[in-house]
């Protein structure tokens, strides 16, 4: 086991992938000499060369569009989008090409593209630097989407995403890049938990609390705080956002009867809505309370000095827990 940060773990995973398969290639803005604005690709161009770690012109549609062409030649491009808010110029290529080519070609053309997107806020970022755009991609058939929440998962999941024959949106919780953890660098990829599986991070019995990416540590802290009040929360890290692992969550909800979902992204049309609907369909007779969502508001991501209101924190999650447990909460007595 090696102690390393989340960011270093992704770097180590990318290094393994580059080592393993000569068709793996990294492309993005500032990822070469600089090693990326977050240093996630630090040292990789030096070690693997400018043909495998490519500084691209400043054009996201260009990055994804050329990656599609490389896939036709059997490459496995790993595209870095510098920040969440800059993925939209590439949206057309991702939605209309990357996601659909396998389907359109009746399986003849594979699109094993990994799109690395640092996402989420809570770090005082400038406009367009703190967004959570995952729902747009979940709504697009043909794409997988995952997000690790700790260094070990980051190390393994980035390799699994690259090895996957489908396109994978790989969301990196950027405010956790400095989070330290133990990573087994020799871990066998084939023995790792499947990429599309959620994980119970902490068992509990009173309610199920589902989080992913940047909010997993927050959810775990909330579970600690709830335990102090005698409430036992089961915390699930979704890991995979598309497909959603309904099996793991439904199992849990059948035991707890209550579900709280939290994410930074806006509420309407978000992942919480999909999860709540899917779990209600599967667990209707087990539910003691309607699923509760604790999410960002339906607003553009706000400026740094307002973001503390927007990003769900421990207190807001606990308020949601109180709601799902029918304890006094901020909406008590409200009939709408």
């Amino acid at each position: 086991m090696t102690t390393m940060t989340f960011g270093q773990a992704i770097n180590a995973g990318l290094r393994k992938a580059l080592d393993r398969d000569p068709k793996v290639l990294l492309i993005g803005e500032d990822i070469g000499t600089l090693g990326g604005v977050f240093r996630i690709t630090d040292g990789l161009q030096k070690d693997f060369g400018a043909h495998r770690v490519v500084d691209s012109p400043l054009a996201e549609s260009g990055i994804l569009g050329t990656a599609v062409g490389m896939c036709f030649r059997g490459y496995r491009p790993v595209c870095e989008i510098q920040f969440d808010g800059f993925v939209y110029p590439a949206f057309d290529q991702i939605v209309s090409q990357v996601a659909k080519l396998h389907y359109r070609s009746r399986g003849r053309v594979k699109m094993p593209i990994t799109v690395r997107v640092p996402f989420g806020g809570g770090f005082g970022g400038a406009e367009h630097h703190s967004e959570s755009p995952e729902a747009y991609f979940l709504h697009t058939a043909g794409l997988r989407a995952v997000t690790p929440s700790n260094p070990q998962d980051a190390f393994l999941m980035v390799q699994q995403a690259i090895a996957c024959d489908d396109p994978v949106m790989f969301f990196e919780p950027k405010r956790r890049y400095h989070l330290k953890g133990e990573v087994d660098l020799e871990a066998d990829l084939s023995a790792a938990a499947p990429l599309d599986q959620a994980r119970i991070e902490r068992p509990g019995s009173d309610a199920t609390l589902v989080a992913y990416g940047p909010l997993v540590p927050t959810a775990l802290a909330a579970a600690d705080a709830a335990a102090d009040e005698g409430i036992s929360l089961e915390v699930i890290d979704l890991r995979s956002l598309s497909p959603l692992d309904f099996g793991t969550v439904a199992d849990s909800v059948r035991r707890t009867g209550r579900l709280v979902i939290t994410h930074e992204a806006s509420q309407t049309g978000g992942l919480g809505a999909e999860l709540a609907a899917g779990i209600t369909e599967r667990c209707f007779y087990y539910l003691e309370h309607a699923p509760v969502r604790v999410t960002g508001f339906d607003i553009p991501y706000p400026s740094a000095r307002m973001e503390q209101h927007h990003v769900p924190d421990l207190d807001r999650i606990l308020d949601g827990v109180d709601r799902v447990l029918d304890r006094p909460n901020s909406l008590s007595g409200l009939e709408d």
Partner: peptide
């Protein structure tokens, strides 16, 4: 320069 990329990349 565009951050770390010299103009010849563009």
């Amino acid at each position: 320069w565009a951050i770390s990329e010299p103009v010849r990349v563009q």
